[in-house]
Design a protein around this nucleic acid. Sequence first.
DNA 1: CACTGTGAATACCTTCACAGCA
DNA 2: TGCTGTGAAGGTATTCACAGTG
Lengths: 221, 221
Amino acid sequence: MTREVPVVRGVPEASVERLPGYLRTLTVLQEQGTTLVSSEELAAAAGVGSAMLRKDLSHLGSTGVRGVGYDVERLASLLAESLGLTRDWPVAIVGMGKLGRALAAHAGLAARGLRVVALLDRDPAVVGEVVAGQVVRPMSDLPRLEGLAIGVIATPAGSAQDAADALIEAGVGSILNLAPAVLSVPEDVVVRSVDLASELQVLAFHEWRKATSVVLPLEVS
Amino acid sequence: MTREVPVVRGVPEASVERLPGYLRTLTVLQEQGTTLVSSEELAAAAGVGSAMLRKDLSHLGSTGVRGVGYDVERLASLLAESLGLTRDWPVAIVGMGKLGRALAAHAGLAARGLRVVALLDRDPAVVGEVVAGQVVRPMSDLPRLEGLAIGVIATPAGSAQDAADALIEAGVGSILNLAPAVLSVPEDVVVRSVDLASELQVLAFHEWRKATSVVLPLEVS
DNA sequence: CACTGTGAATACCTTCACAGCA
DNA sequence: TGCTGTGAAGGTATTCACAGTG
């Protein structure tokens, strides 16, 4: 996973990356009927330290009550608004392989303001198929789509740059790149890359490290 | 009391996360017939700065030649060995939804030493199905699997902790968690979480920020 | 009085810049 | 000469610890 985001105004990137997790955790608490939560409790549920949580929230203009904690609903609203959940973000997915289809079928994107408005593929054999209730379109349809905000690249590595170029041409401002390739894009376009094979390789590295390092017996005192 | 588990390979985590990308880039160069590469060129192709690349490689006991550059094949070998590619890492995938199936079918895992040895699902209706050439097994088969190294959780959030517990019980030392949930695991188990919906939400945040911050036209004097 | 919000301290990561070597 | 390897500098991110407050 990589990121290339110029930290511009306000919230540090590392902090931004944790916000969706906080919102998720709050939603669970809400469903459980919890109405008030301390930073300690929320942090534990979100898997982070409480000081970090408080600092993260402070960037959003936090709204806790000293001596008491946070109002769950209020905090959830703050996070939702900060993340842009109040708006709809039209998403186009390029590449209808297994991964692209999995994402297209992903329930819960819509609930978070992420509206998948187009599925595209370069392969004429795939175009016209119905995936997750939508007809797969040819790449040539891209320029016709209005108001696109986010593009997802789920193509093979070799087509990733072409897909990126086409998405940007169509007006996309952010790209989630699932292909194992480095994209070159204008600097005002935000790219996040996720490569599952690389994630597994990082884990393999850790297993390898564990296997080759814990040879010496531990000393107990 | 003890602490001090032998710390051997001092490769910083941030560095480890970039190694698979370097290897990927080198493989492409190799296929193109390139035999020698400078840090500047390789860094550009991998989308990082050249100083960072050199520092990353230095942690592995780098093997460049001053005034010349790196031997592509030699460097690829170094990276492959460092990442544990010389060994096979048995992987089990839990959860045969769309995402789990996509990963199971992922070509190129095997080429990187990641051998998917088992597909599992809790749902009896899915057990027995053939996915990517393998029969889906019930969770109760997990304890029977020998030598598992890495587990992938591709279940709904509600089942993720159960899946993690079962995988760890079966001897897994590292987990790739694709479910939107926080896992609690023993501290010697390495967990990496990837949530595609959260990734998209981070992008939505950036779009939102761009839309709300660049309202005032810049004044140039 | 328990908890938040935050300055200060620390740890970590990246970039700079150049010494040193083929 | 041209490039690597790396100490030092500069940034970010995280943690500590406590003052401030409902």
